[in-house]
Write a protein that binds this DNA or RNA. Structure first.
Lengths: 226, 226
DNA sequence: ATGCCGGATATTGCATCCAATATCCAGATA
DNA sequence: TATCTGGATATTGGATGCAATATCCGGCAT
């Protein structure tokens, strides 16, 4: 029986993968950058084996591109692919939201409300790194009541990629007034049990994020002369 | 420049992962079965390292469940989860089919037709292992024209799981007359450019497969006393 | 100058070995 | 009998070292 304070022990590859994931999402490891196993091994003060496993793991997640005998590089998506990622999010998130709304209890609303405040708090505090995290958690909280393990697992995978690009342009993304309003309205519609209204708004919300983000990335890449 | 006959060199972990994937899909490695690294290493005549990497890879794909210091077991999904897998397929496949139909050229129709014949051929030949493969390939061929790399990648991942359960009950699944007719009709609708009709039929087709398969798995598990 | 060759260097791939952890089982204890 | 304990065994985790492969770079021919 697992004690109440049992700490689930993580293996080295797990811990290293988590850390590298954050470093990629935060942009510390830039698009296209080559990843040297030996270097990371020294940074984490371990041998190359656990680093290798962590990298292979991230490669399976699609964050790292792997080439035999040449090692890994941080993945870079085309604008097309980034668009597709958002389209996949729409398909899955709207489905989850539809299923969640009829099941939501007060506890769910409270949890969403809490995250919403956090997010609104980070607007003022200008806490850039926190907002991205809160935004993702808020979206997932909206779907918690759907009770769909597999869908959420796949959504986590997909969101990993979209979040990465959102975070890069975070200072702009979080300013968007309509998006802020969407977030609150989504919760209101859910509270009213308005499945159709919620589905429509969520689709529009993600669609708008997609359009605005793609524009910014396109501009940035043009400036970088690509 | 890569020669026309260049064989892309695979690493040991890749080759082993492919082989193990087939062994799991074919049912040779059964649900819940523990996987011993040393044993596999001997079978493939390599050390445990490449086997380890292959298993971690399959674990990232969701075919193998990994527990620290205890190794891997072949994953077993609940009926709920299997249902979800089919629901995800519906979301993504219908979206892909909608996008593909307007783009399909004669070459696409020919490719689908070829796979359809293969599949129909395997009905008579009673080639069980071939049918599962052809069925999957046929579905993917229907969406080839959609030109959506990410979506197809995710679909491959999801289908991996549904195909596994379809294959277990293959001898029954491939007999189903309505499904056979669906396959041909899908192609006809696509040829007519009937996006709505195609989308509706595809959804029904997958939905029916889901229902029938879930019944069979439920019955089988009841018999196994679970 | 440009392109090609070959050796030096950097890096990854994998086998082997030892340490850490889990599992099994016989004997002790209540 | 049921449960606990500790040590023997099985199994995984990770460090090290060597082989295989890729990359870099200077000299040579054109």
């Amino acid at each position: 029986m697992a004690g109440r304070r049992a700490v689930k022990k993580q293996s080295l590859p797990e811990m290293i993968a988590s850390d590298l994931r954050q470093r990629i999402l935060s942009g510390e490891l830039a698009e296209g950058e080559a990843i040297r196993q030996e270097l990371l091994a020294k940074e984490y003060d371990v041998s190359r084996m656990p680093v290798r496993e962590a990298l292979k793991r991230l490669s399976a997640e699609g964050l790292v591109q792997w080439e035999n005998n040449r090692g890994g590089t941080v993945i870079k998506h085309s604008l097309r692919e980034i668009g597709e990622i958002f389209d996949l999010r729409i398909l899955i998130e709207v489905d989850l939201f539809r299923r969640a709304i009829p099941n939501m209890t007060q506890a769910d609303f409270d949890a969403c409300e809490k995250l919403l405040s956090e997010m609104e708090g980070s607007y003022e505090a200008d806490d850039v790194s926190q907002w991205g995290q809160s935004n993702h958690e808020y979206h997932m909280a909206l779907y918690a009541a759907a009770d769909r393990r597999m869908s959420k697992e796949f959504l986590e995978r997909i969101s990993l990629h979209s979040d990465r690009y959102v975070r890069i342009h975070l200072s702009v993304m979080k300013q968007r007034q309509p998006a802020k309003e969407d977030h609150r309205k989504l919760l209101e519609l859910a509270a009213k049990g308005d499945v159709e209204g919620g589905a429509v708004l969520l689709q529009k919300h993600i669609e708008r994020t997609k359009t605005e983000l793609l524009e910014m990335i396109a501009k940035q890449r043009r400036l970088a002369g690509e």
